[in-house]
Design a protein around this nucleic acid. Structure first.
Lengths: 150, 150
DNA sequence: TGAATTCCCATAATATCCCATGGATTGCCA
DNA sequence: TGGCAATCCATGGGATATTATGGGAATTCA
């Protein structure tokens, strides 16, 4: 499970460390899958398990009629077509390709945000602003915590 | 799994490199299967596993009555009948036959787009236009990401 | 025999691996 | 509980391997 938030530096080679907790969540195949979000200037990602889930989810929805084949293909193009498999070395580092860096406006460092089954990568300042907005929204919505089924 | 997008040059002999990530996804039999799309000026393709899946899928749908035998044969003609098995050499290159090149209007380079269990091959500019359209479509349709079942 | 195709080698750019280091945290044991 | 040792983590730099691509030699086909 991808948990917590960590900011790591991006060195001259474009390398950055995947948070160690994320690596534990991924399992044996040492790689993350990252793609540009269609919803803003940040990256989305996960492990192999997430990619498999996405693929199955798209298939199932087309099969049960809740997603048009054209929409399914659009999502596949924007997700699978843009996603990169980034293997990390023994020290847990990936290299962020230029196109991903540019999409998220990443320069000296990157903020990894765990979201359970997936994670996001933000420019640190952009994430601060985003987080403030999220806090307001949470306060105005029905909180899950407190009424979770035991 | 076929992931990411890569544009590779087509040299004077008609050779182009299959993206290395695609080769990893294919396995031991060093070949891709490519055919002209019936939906537009691009190519569709995959590995041996995809061809087997397509064949089984067609069979199953005929068996459960959701596909007419005549339609099944039509699809077989346009898919199996048009598909080419293109083996790649030690450096990962295939030669794109003329009929495929012409169908997709390929000249100096080809863009490979991973779509999970399959991929597409586009002329680079055509793919840019297509991708923009896909992005609009994605923004207007229910996103799979974010609500993937854990 | 001529044209096309396949195979093989070369190369520059890039990505990957490997070792080293410092800082912080954790664990252990008195 | 306090302090020392060991471990883990993030990061830097250099060495190695891979990739994409060009060109030539060998082979096949008509």
């Amino acid at each position: 499970m991808f948990l917590s938030t960590a900011t790591h530096s991006i060195d001259a080679k474009g390398r950055t460390s995947v948070p160690s907790g994320f690596r534990d969540a991924i399992g044996e195949d040492a790689a993350v899958f990252i793609w540009p979000s269609v919803r803003g200037a940040f990256l989305e990602g996960g492990g192999k398990a997430l990619m498999d889930s996405v693929q199955r989810e798209i298939f199932d929805r087309v099969a049960d009629g809740s997603l048009l084949p054209e929409d399914a293909e659009a999502q596949q193009v924007m997700l699978m077509g843009a996603a990169q498999r980034l293997g990390y070395d023994k020290t847990g580092r990936i290299v962020l390709p230029d196109n991903l860096r540019q999409h998220a406006n990443l320069s000296a460092s990157a903020t990894f945000v765990g979201l359970g089954n997936r994670f996001q990568v933000w420019d640190p300042e952009a994430h601060e602003a985003r987080k403030a907005a999220m806090e307001d929204r949470v306060k105005a919505s029905p909180l899950v915590m407190g009424i979770v089924r035991p």
